[in-house]
């Protein structure tokens, strides 16, 4: 099963990204497990200096900004 992680320390942008990811997953009808990573140490282990970030199957897809829903769908398709 695909694994999507949202990295962020609980800021407003991270919540917004989580919402977008949930919508994208629903619209694609994909079988995905969504996890939130809020621990700064774990976030930094992905090599990210700016949040929010989206990680799919342990690959960082975007960070430091909120990608659009369409972009998120593209990321998911890339990893199917």
């Amino acid at each position: 099963m695909m694994n999507i992680k949202i990295l962020g320390t609980g800021c407003a942008n991270c919540k917004k990204l989580t919402g977008l990811v949930e919508e994208a997953v629903k619209e694609l009808n994909a079988d995905v497990e969504i996890q939130k990573v809020e621990d700064i140490q774990k976030i930094m282990e992905y090599g990210v200096m700016r949040t929010p970030a989206i990680v799919i199957n342990e690959k960082v897809k975007a960070f430091g900004r909120i990608p659009s829903k369409e972009e998120i769908k593209e990321y998911i398709k890339e990893e199917v």
């Binding site: 992905y46 090599g47 990210v48």
Partner: peptide, 9 residues
């Protein structure tokens, strides 16, 4: 923590 190595897009 290892050095964050990602390049900015």
């Amino acid at each position: 923590i290892g050095s964050p190595n990602l390049e900015a897009e």
